[in-house]
Amino acid sequence: MDAEPRTVEVCGLRIGYRRAGRGKPLLLLHGGFSDSREWRPQLDGLADELDVIAMDCLGCGVSADAPPGFALAEYADIAAGFLRALGLESAHVGGISFGSLYALVLYRHHPEAVRSLVLAGAYAGWAGSLAAEEVARRIAWAEGALTRPADEWGPDFLATVYSDPSPELFAEAMEILRDVRPGGFTPVARTFWQADVRDVLPTIQVRTLLINGEQDARATLPVTRQLQSRIPDATLAVVPGAGHGVNGEAPLAFNTAVQVFLSRVPG
């Protein structure tokens, strides 16, 4: 990865990010238990055509921890303020898994900052897309995982994220998991875990691309099709053979879908 981590101050907080390329700005928001390194295949593969900006969420990567009591609206303020700190009033916004929810939260509170949406392995929040018992199961598992070393739970977790990862992808993903800061990420996760943003979906007035791995075991195709049915101008790209971490497992197909989509979106 050529893009080295940088930082900028937003609302008095340090925000880490990686950036590569030029062209239309594309803000990328990573998944849970992760950071901006998750977007390496896009920082490497889309930089010829796009200004790719991968942000570390608060509590992740080199970003500061969130202040106590931070609410969803304040996380949206951070993302919008981050763009302004880079001299951008708006950007195309992509997110995967947890990051897809973050993108929808950003749209809810700062629609003017979002030119289009690219949502991969997406949820309208766990509570907005999954049965209540499944939400409870995932929260209980995650709370437990955050108290233990990543090597104890990481391989089983990644088996639900990827369909057939290369050794290099698996090793990189484990490295990112080992760097998770439980004290930083747990408050963020608890704020987002119970979120239900289904009410936002019919209000979306920008073009939206949904990308799903055909073998996604976490945000299954029926979940994604529910989102597609509720977002007015949404299209769906299904990547054969890929799992939940489709951007890393099938980067060529993912990047091509993003390029084709953004070539048709003004700005």
Results as ranks from 00 to 15, higher is better:
residue 74 E to Y: 06
residue 201 L to N: 08
residue 151 D to R: 15
residue 44 D to T: 13
residue 100 S to Q: 01
residue 106 L to W: 02
residue 148 R to I: 02
residue 17 Y to S: 06
residue 206 V to G: 06
residue 202 P to Q: 06
residue 33 F to G: 05
residue 187 P to T: 00
residue 118 V to E: 03
residue 265 V to M: 04
residue 103 A to I: 05
residue 36 S to E: 00
residue 84 R to P: 07
residue 115 R to P: 10
residue 14 R to L: 08
residue 162 Y to D: 01
residue 19 R to Y: 00
residue 41 P to V: 04
residue 224 T to K: 09
residue 86 L to C: 05
residue 97 S to P: 13
residue 35 D to R: 02
residue 157 F to H: 13
residue 26 L to S: 11
residue 85 A to Y: 00
residue 115 R to M: 08
residue 217 A to S: 14
residue 241 G to C: 07
residue 229 S to H: 12
residue 151 D to P: 06
residue 70 F to Y: 12
residue 211 I to V: 15
residue 215 Q to N: 15
residue 38 E to L: 15
residue 103 A to R: 00
residue 231 I to T: 12
residue 229 S to T: 15
residue 161 V to R: 04
residue 238 V to A: 07
residue 240 P to W: 06
residue 186 T to S: 14
residue 43 L to P: 10
residue 82 F to Q: 09
residue 31 G to W: 02
residue 181 R to D: 14
residue 126 W to P: 03
residue 63 S to T: 11
residue 28 L to D: 02
residue 6 R to Q: 14
residue 224 T to S: 07
residue 97 S to L: 11
residue 220 T to C: 02
residue 177 L to Q: 08
residue 246 V to K: 10
residue 70 F to G: 09
residue 238 V to T: 13
residue 107 Y to L: 08
residue 107 Y to T: 11
residue 224 T to P: 05
residue 43 L to A: 10
residue 181 R to Y: 13
residue 45 G to A: 05
residue 33 F to C: 10
residue 49 E to I: 07
residue 121 G to K: 08
residue 259 Q to T: 15
residue 35 D to T: 03
residue 37 R to W: 06
residue 258 V to Q: 01
residue 171 A to T: 14
residue 27 L to Y: 12
residue 221 L to G: 11
residue 79 A to E: 11
residue 31 G to H: 01
residue 205 Q to F: 09
residue 141 W to E: 15
residue 233 D to Y: 08
residue 200 V to Y: 06
residue 114 V to D: 04
residue 191 T to P: 05
residue 164 D to I: 09
residue 151 D to M: 10
residue 195 A to N: 08
residue 113 A to S: 14
residue 45 G to D: 08
residue 48 D to I: 03
residue 72 L to M: 02
residue 138 R to K: 14
residue 111 P to I: 00
residue 2 D to G: 13
residue 201 L to D: 04
residue 15 I to E: 03
residue 127 A to M: 13
residue 254 F to M: 04
residue 240 P to I: 00
residue 263 S to R: 13
residue 15 I to G: 04
residue 92 H to M: 07
residue 38 E to P: 05
residue 247 N to A: 15
residue 86 L to K: 01
residue 111 P to F: 03
residue 156 D to S: 13
residue 185 F to L: 12
residue 63 S to V: 12
residue 91 A to P: 01
residue 157 F to D: 07
residue 15 I to F: 10
residue 248 G to K: 04
residue 212 N to Q: 11
residue 200 V to R: 06
residue 34 S to C: 14
residue 51 D to A: 15
residue 208 T to F: 02
residue 162 Y to E: 02
residue 14 R to Y: 01
residue 6 R to E: 11
residue 171 A to M: 10
residue 128 G to D: 06
residue 63 S to Y: 12
residue 226 Q to A: 14
residue 108 R to K: 14
residue 88 L to A: 07
residue 54 A to H: 09
